[in-house]
Computed example of a mutant assay.
Amino acid sequence: MTEPLTPPPVVSVVIPAYNEEWRILPTIGAIATHMSARGEPWELIIADDGSTDATISLVRDLRFANLRLLVAEENRGKGNAVRRGMCAARGKLVLFADADQSTPIEQFDRLAALIDAGFDVVAGSRAAQGATVSGKSLTRRVLSRGLRAVVSRGFGITVTDTQCGFKLFTKDAAQELFSTQLVNGFSFDLEVLYLARHLGYRVAEVPVEWIDAPGSTVDAAKVSMQFLRDLLRIRLNRVLGRYRRARPSERFGA
């Protein structure tokens, strides 16, 4: 809180935020409590997405020595916010987590164990066996199952839940994947996992606890339509070679 890190952080935690004035301080408090208890140097990055409420001022007023606030001049989408945060991270491990803490920060330890086992990307999952899901509406459950079927058949991604906002990366994987990623909307998770598969990163999925946070402004039906449009956009980007131009890599295969 008061002393800047001398060694580089072991872990960077990236939180995208857009008009989160009611949730951002409790979220920062929960993350700080758990991550500090691990006894490793770590940093917190709040990647603002053009908030128009008090989110920015609340975070600035904390004046925490190891908290960085990245401010966007305008709202450009969650994918853009996460990209800026992940590319700015200095930790050996980089966690992306949603501001609503639907997946509690305590689940971090499960993901970190698989990084220690040799994986490059670990996705928290609400669909994997052993996951605990509370408060998810019937509409969201039906839409999620439908979208998972489309992703599995059309993209060959083995992760059953691409959209859970809780994913851990090695620094190298985070830097390459997020500097290549192009989608600015909610489908950026899918794009990152798609790129990870083609770039040869080892990807694992781990069941997590997930609670539908009150006050969510996500319109499930609207987001699902955007998701389907982004599926086509990702395919088009691949066909046109836009990912190769964004970050050349001879490992990017079919």
Rank of each mutant, 00 (worst) to 15 (best):
R38Y: 03
D98S: 06
R76M: 09
S187W: 03
Y194P: 03
T103I: 14
E106T: 14
S137R: 05
T52P: 02
E20H: 12
I211K: 15
R84A: 08
S144A: 11
L190H: 15
G135S: 06
Q226R: 15
E176W: 07
D100I: 01
F227R: 12
Q181L: 15
R63T: 06
V239R: 15
V218E: 06
A17T: 01
P207W: 00
S179F: 10
L58R: 09
Q129I: 10
D49A: 06
R141Y: 03
G29M: 08
P4Q: 01
N75T: 04
G200H: 09
Q175L: 13
D109N: 02
R126A: 14
A246C: 08
S102I: 01
D53K: 09
V71P: 02
A88P: 00
L182R: 15
G29V: 03
L143D: 03
A123M: 10
G253W: 12
A246N: 08
L168Q: 07
F119H: 09
A47R: 00
R140C: 01
V14R: 06
R126M: 05
I31L: 14
G85T: 01
W210C: 12
E43Y: 04
R76I: 02
P8F: 11
V13D: 00
P26Q: 08
A65C: 02
I56Y: 01
D116L: 01
P4C: 04
N75W: 02
A30E: 15
N75L: 04
A220V: 02
V223I: 09
Q129E: 13
R63Y: 00
L70V: 05
F188A: 10
G185C: 14
L236C: 10
A213K: 09
V133W: 03
P41N: 11
R251Y: 04
D212C: 09
W210A: 13
G124K: 09
M35S: 05
L240D: 05
T33Y: 15
A81V: 05
D53L: 07
T158F: 11
L5R: 10
D120R: 07
L5E: 02
V10S: 09
R76V: 06
V82H: 01
S187D: 10
W22Y: 02
K92R: 11
T27P: 07
A221L: 12
T139K: 13
R23P: 02
E40G: 00
V183E: 10
T158Q: 12
M225V: 15
E74V: 09
V59D: 03
F64H: 12
Q226N: 09
F108N: 00
E40N: 08
K171A: 14
G77D: 04
I157A: 02
Q101E: 04
V13Y: 01
I15R: 07
A54K: 14
D100A: 10
S51R: 07
K136W: 06
D116C: 05
L5S: 01
T55H: 01
V203E: 10
V121N: 04
T132K: 15
